[in-house]
Design a protein around this nucleic acid. Sequence first.
RNA 1: CGGGGCGUAGCGCAGCUUGGUAGCGCACCUGCCUUGGGAGCAGGGGGUCGGCCGUUCAAAUCGGCUCGCCCCGACCA
Length: 507
Amino acid sequence: MKQALKTAISPTREEDYAEWYQQVVRVADLAETSAVRGCMVIKPWGYSLWENIQRVLDGMFKATGHQNAYFPLFIPLSYLQKEAEHVEGFAKECAVVTHHRLEAGPDGNLVPAGELTEPLVVRPTSETIIGATFAKWVQSYRDLPLLINQWANVVRWEMRPRIFLRTTEFLWQEGHTVHASAQEAQEETERMLDVYADFAERYMAIPVIKGEKTDSERFPGAVSTYCIEAMMQDRKALQAGTSHFLGQNFARSSEITFSDVTGKEAHAWTTSWGVSTRLIGGLIMTHSDDNGLILPPRLAPRHVVILPMLRKDKNRAEILAYCKRVAQELRGLRYDDQPLQVELDTRDASGGEKVWSWIKKGVPLRVEIGQRELDNDALFVGRRDQTQSERSSQARAEFVQTVTKQLDEIQAALLERARTLRDQYTRRIDSKDEFYDFFTPQNRDKPEIHAGFALSHWNGQPGIEETIKNDLNVTIRCIPLDAPEEDGRCIMSGEPSRRRVIFAKSY
RNA sequence: CGGGGCGUAGCGCAGCUUGGUAGCGCACCUGCCUUGGGAGCAGGGGGUCGGCCGUUCAAAUCGGCUCGCCCCGACCA
């Protein structure tokens, strides 16, 4: 008999966090790398997770008055150039289309031909082309606010891809809105940040900190950038979503103007905001353990998997019939306003093999059904947020009655667990020595699990940020919005400060 | 794009130092037997050893170039 593995994933998080992450992606069947550098294939299990994220967010966008539309993949080069800061920020990572045809070359291989008069940039983000379109749509204050979202793919030619976290092509949504006043645009920016934070906590079970970015981390072309920041299990920060107040910058470069109530022509105020497939990376790194993925029930493609434990010589048919009956009963239920998703795993594999495959894929509830359950009209239930030894027998009727409550409990437990971890590794630090000590790796040769978040005072000077980044590879993740003002002194300069900011290593 | 590491079957690896034409475990296929913590037995399929060029009678093995992946940076969602 094969020896039982200690953990399904090897190496463990502690042993090699980066490798563990890739293993989870692979064994959970979420995605794989492709023939194209930096681009991933999202497999059905991973894509259905994305579909659930889309469904929920899309509902939240609609509920806040937004409509979906779709804009071109290609952006004329001249559009991108219109906003100086914007082009500077993205120029280094643009894929550029220069030809529109292939012809056989002298050696028979195809070569690009038909050079374009103006190169097209594959969108890294769509502010410029959407701005040009909005300029035509907006004439009067009566056309405002204009609240649009698009689900799309974008391309950013990153130097260091990491599956889900930083791929060359990624899927996202980008909201783009136009308003008649700065205040309205500012309110929209904050509203959508709230939507993201709400989604992260209530659906992804990821506790996040809402904050504003410093100048050095601001979106190119924005007046101000807001973000939600989460702590991963290696205690690095992950920016999970951003919302930008663009002021009149893009309205000026795209000439989005309107006649106000008095008939006066004015530039509009715009916002943009987005989350991407990076969220899936964040989900993995927040909840998963050394046995694989753990999915929050509200986003899980399957809520319950039923695993028949069959013996050849005994009541196979009866056990299977019982399994089907349970599946049918469960499928009649609803969870979180959606049909409860139930999988009956009838694969011809051993019980252990089936159980572990679903553990690795992160399904919240596993129901094992064999002769004992059939005899007692019961189910043997395992929760993915608990260990295998914590499984328990439950009466069938009781399980059916309480399954949604059990899913809610798992959802809440995951959020609580993540919040506890984050709080445990968040420290208020008031001296430079302690700060440097905090962020200096314990094991210089292999720094994998990091220190966490430091809440410290900062004098607002970019020079200090840069020094800290150069010394420790630590940056200001955000200036928290909810933090109370307090008197303190910058840990580096000793100058007075009114507010703590979050320092951390980040993805 | 800089520094380091690694490319041998789907996954994980050995073989390379000392050249002789490829192996192991898991996975996969068939049969039997099994299925409640990742089963067993028997048989079987699958690799131009990342690619190109060179050295050689002969290259997974030696040399050069190149591509890709991973880690640490810089850049970034």
